[in-house]
């Protein structure tokens, strides 16, 4: 960590420190709405980072990451509701459960040579049949959803994620910053090098003695486990879980937009992407609401247009362009 700080260029250090200071102090000045949008940005920066680790660094395309969000959220919510075990402990079970799903998908895909788009299809299939399973699972309330009750006496139990907007704001900030730090460290680790080698050319990587199977398994297990933490956050922030909402493929897509727009395989890509996309989406919702337009698909269309524009203008993402502008270096593809 200290080493990372040391190698960061002075300008980079100033920007990071300044951004963190502003975000830490912002609740003093900003209103609830701004805080809620920022909380959402942190959430997408976090899960985007988890996905980025697998796709951006290890080159394995998952279009079913909503699965890990959902499994993580459901496991922690169930433990809280049925067993009275708080999310500070439940998160470990959530991570383990999602990582087990990730390991199963990874094993199937990598052992049997299902690669590229076919692997992506496999991840979609798992997310979809899990959604259908949860639709019919009585324990979790089936399609009618699972609700975390509001209890007056528990307010302030921050370790149980019972609290107001500020709790989730700071938790989100910590998660997003922690994930960026973790990915930065992993990218420089032995595993990170091996991921990038496999991403670039798996055959060549194997020819050099890299155990491509093990390396890819590590990526999917770490990524799915990380994503599950986002799921716990989601469950306790919104206090409700519906299979049709959390496991939807549109959720998986939504979650990968920030790293793609921001820049795949870079540490700050998912963060920048979330800061660009989320306010745009929220702003659009606010505008259509103001004019009394009720068009449920408008956000998806809007994201589509934004994606086309950004990707055609900056194929490797917003961040690599910005980084070049400021003379910084990140692991751009």
């Amino acid at each position: 960590m200290i080493e990372l700080w040391r190698i960061a260029p002075p300008r980079g250090r100033i920007v990071i420190a300044l951004a963190l200071a502003v975000l830490l102090a912002l609740p003093l000045a900003a209103d609830r709405y701004v805080i809620s949008v920022l909380t959402l940005i942190f959430y997408f920066a976090y899960v985007g980072q988890a996905w980025n680790l697998m796709m951006g660094y290890a080159g394995q395309l998952s279009l079913g990451h909503a699965l890990y969000v959902g499994v993580g959220g459901y496991v922690a919510a169930l433990m809280w509701l049925k067993l009275g075990i708080g999310p500070w402990l439940g998160v470990f079970a959530a991570v383990a459960a999602a990582a087990a799903f990730g390991a199963a998908i990874g094993w199937l895909g990598f052992r049997f040579g299902i690669a590229g788009v076919y692997f992506a299809l496999l991840t979609i299939a798992f997310a979809e049949f899990t959604r259908i399973g949860f639709d019919h699972l009585e324990l979790t309330g089936g399609a009618a959803g699972l609700f975390l009750p509001f209890e007056e006496k528990r307010i302030g139990e921050w370790w149980n994620l019972r609290g107001g907007q500020l709790l989730f704001y700071y938790l989100g900030l910590a998660l997003a910053a922690g994930a960026a730090l973790l990915v930065a460290l992993m990218a420089r680790s032995r595993l990170g090098y091996q991921w990038r080698a496999v991403r670039e050319d798996e055959t060549a990587a194997r020819a050099l003695g890299i155990d491509a199977f093990a390396v890819k398994m590590a990526a999917v297990v770490i990524s799915s486990g990380m994503t599950a933490v986002g799921g716990v956050f989601y469950a306790f922030y919104y206090n409700n879980l519906f299979p049709s909402q959390v496991f939807e493929i549109s959720r998986s897509i939504e979650l990968i937009l920030a790293p793609i727009v921001g820049g795949l395989g870079t540490v700050f890509g998912p963060v920048i992407g979330a800061f660009v996309l989320t306010p745009l989406g929220e702003g659009l919702t606010a505008v259509t609401g103001r004019f009394g337009i009720n068009a449920p698909g408008v956000k998806a269309v809007f994201y589509g247009v934004v994606l086309i524009v950004i990707i055609s203008a900056m194929p490797s993402g917003v961040w690599p362009r910005l980084a070049a502008l400021f003379g910084l270096k990140d692991h751009a593809r």
Binding site: R196, A197, E200, D201, T203, A204, A205, A207, A332, R333
Partner: peptide, 11 residues
């Protein structure tokens, strides 16, 4: 040393 060199281009 595999055929076609196969270096990792962005590394």
């Amino acid at each position: 040393v595999a055929e076609g060199r196969q270096v990792f281009p962005t590394l």
